[in-house]
Each structure stands twice: as structure tokens, then as C-alpha cells.
């Protein structure tokens, strides 16, 4: 039996363990969070001169700020299955970090099942596949619902 390989579609943005987390930066001076992680060593808070950051896992749960779906096939660099399958998208507010993070919603959930304020949790799912390799990405899933 050949196991499918699981690799990150975007390296360094999230962990691949279960349960998965997004990886953010937290300023050691003011505590502001950043996602994706800061590439330059300077805090973006204009009142902070911080230059050191810790890589931290972000909250895995939050509430829907808004949501929609993609009914038309997006252009590259999106890699589409053939035929294209529409998917839902959610913007989810993380309470502890006080920030909103966008992402696809897991397969099988459509906009009719979503609502502003609904609790969501982070999971890994395939963004696209190449041969026997699944390119994984973070997706949002209504809390307590089995994908």
C-alpha cells in the first residue's frame, strides 16, 4: 500500500502536525501578532521599536467575520482540478490575536451553512495534488462538524 505524501503548499506558514496551527510572529516588545510571519526584523506598530520576534502558533479557532465562495475558476497561480469545483472562503476573527485570517473552507461546506459570528476551527486539507503528493493548506471548518 502506497501512502500519499503530505507536504505544505506554502512552506513555513503552518505546522503539518495534528491539530495544525498557523505560524505567526509575536513582537517581544508590544505583543502584536503578524501572519504571515514578519520577514523584516522590525515591528509594524508605529508606537513600537521592537526588533525581536518569537514564532508562535496562532489560535486554531475563531468566529466568522464574513464569507463567500469562488464560483469561477481563479487564474494561476491557483491550481485547479479538472473540472473546477467551487469552494467556500471565510474570513475568521481570532479572539486572542485580535486579527482576521482568510482561508478556504473545507470541501463539502457551502455558503448556505455559514453565518457571520459562527465558530470555526483550523484544519489541513489538500489545496491541490501532484501525482502521489497532496499539497496541504490551512482551511476553515465549522466547529464540531466532521469534514
Amino acid at each position: 500500500m502506497s501512502a500519499r505524501q503530505r507536504v505544505a503548499a506554502i512552506e513555513g506558514w503552518y505546522t503539518l502536525d495534528e491539530p495544525a496551527h498557523l505560524l505567526g510572529s509575536r513582537c517581544n516588545s508590544c505583543g502584536s501578532y503578524y501572519f504571515p510571519r514578519l520577514s523584516a526584523g522590525f515591528c509594524r506598530n508605529p508606537a513600537c521599536e521592537g526588533t525581536s520576534f518569537e514564532t508562535v502558533p496562532l489560535s486554531r479557532t475563531g468566529r466568522i467575520w464574513s464569507y463567500t465562495n469562488a464560483c469561477y475558476q481563479p487564474p494561476p497561480p491557483f491550481v485547479s482540478p479538472t473540472p473546477f469545483v467551487p469552494f467556500a472562503i471565510a474570513a475568521v476573527e481570532l479572539a486572542a490575536e485580535r486579527m482576521i485570517v482568510l482561508g478556504q473552507v473545507v470541501a463539502g461546506i457551502d455558503v448556505g451553512q455559514l453565518k457571520v459570528g459562527m465558530p470555526m476551527e483550523l484544519v489541513l486539507e489538500s489545496l491541490y495534488s501532484e501525482g502521489d503528493t497532496d499539497k496541504l493548506v490551512w482551511k476553515w471548518k465549522p466547529s464540531g462538524v466532521r469534514p
Binding site: 501578532y33 485580535r98 482576521i100
Partner: peptide
Amino acid sequence: VEMPDIATDSAVAA
């Protein structure tokens, strides 16, 4: 949420 960002700023410290 602002195009083309994946995430907003964090309002923890400001």
C-alpha cells in the same frame, strides 16, 4: 480585511 492581504493587523497592542 483589505485586498490583497491574507490577514489583518493584530489589534492587541494598538
